[in-house]
């Protein structure tokens, strides 16, 4: 007798929560509201569902992302080489307040998730939202909120390292302001995944 199982209840209506999958976003069968499982209990969560902008025949999934809004302040940076190519290609700087996108579903292989995370974070797209998971299914969310901030900070470091030139020194502050959940549409192809926004990038 060292393990206790505590039933989880819907925050909005108090009904016991049911789920067939281990999803950190729990939907109430009773009132339909979504709540987030964190630190052993349910808590309210801000979320939105994005309308697909591309049409495909493949099955449509709504993939959960943590959208971390953070301030990036770089006090000092030293890069060796790569300046010219950066000027020519017009590389954007990842500075100031922006949204970091972190795919929060284990079901999406890391090789797609890491590309999407970077694309979305660089492009800072504007989305049209819809009220429900239209013509598709909601994908299980596996990433906890606590780790989203660190993942976001690593995306920033990854960007600084991946752009032309060799990063040598970096002194910065990364301040997480808020985090919300965004369901982005994606098509599951036979051997790959394709985002249903950003023109299928």
């Amino acid at each position: 007798m060292s393990i206790v199982l505590q039933p989880l209840k819907c925050l909005a209506c108090g009904a016991p929560l049911k789920s067939k999958e281990r999803d950190l976003m729990l939907i109430c069968e009773h009132c339909g509201s979504l709540s987030l499982f964190a630190d052993g209990k349910t808590s309210p969560v801000e979320f939105a569902i994005v309308k697909p902008t591309v049409e495909e025949k493949d099955p449509l999934w709504y993939v959960p992302f943590w959208v971390v809004n953070a301030d990036v302040i770089v006090h000092r940076e030293k890069i060796s080489g790569g300046g010219i190519s950066r000027a020519v290609t017009g590389q954007k700087q990842m500075r100031g307040t922006r949204d970091f996108y972190i795919c929060a579903a284990d079901a999406v292989p890391e090789e797609y998730a890491r590309v999407w995370n970077m694309e979305l974070t660089i492009n800072q797209p504007e989305f049209t939202t819809i009220p429900e998971f239209k013509n598709g299914s909601r994908m299980v969310m596996t990433m906890e909120k606590d780790t989203a901030g660190n993942n976001a900070e690593f995306i920033f470091l990854r960007y600084e390292a991946e752009i032309p030139g060799t990063l040598q020194e970096l002194d910065y502050d990364f301040i997480v302001k808020s985090a919300k959940v965004l369901y982005l549409p994606a098509y599951k192809k036979p051997t790959s995944y394709m985002l249903g926004v950003l023109n299928g990038k």
């Binding site: 060292s2 206790v4 199982l5 039933p7 989880l8 049911k18 067939k20 499982f37």
Partner: peptide, 20 residues
């Protein structure tokens, strides 16, 4: 390491805590 536990028979959702 998982603290979210599901029952595959009745679909109930539980939070798992151990005393340690």
């Amino acid at each position: 390491g998982e603290s979210l536990v599901l029952c595959k028979f009745c679909d109930s959702v539980f939070s798992l805590t151990t005393d340690e």
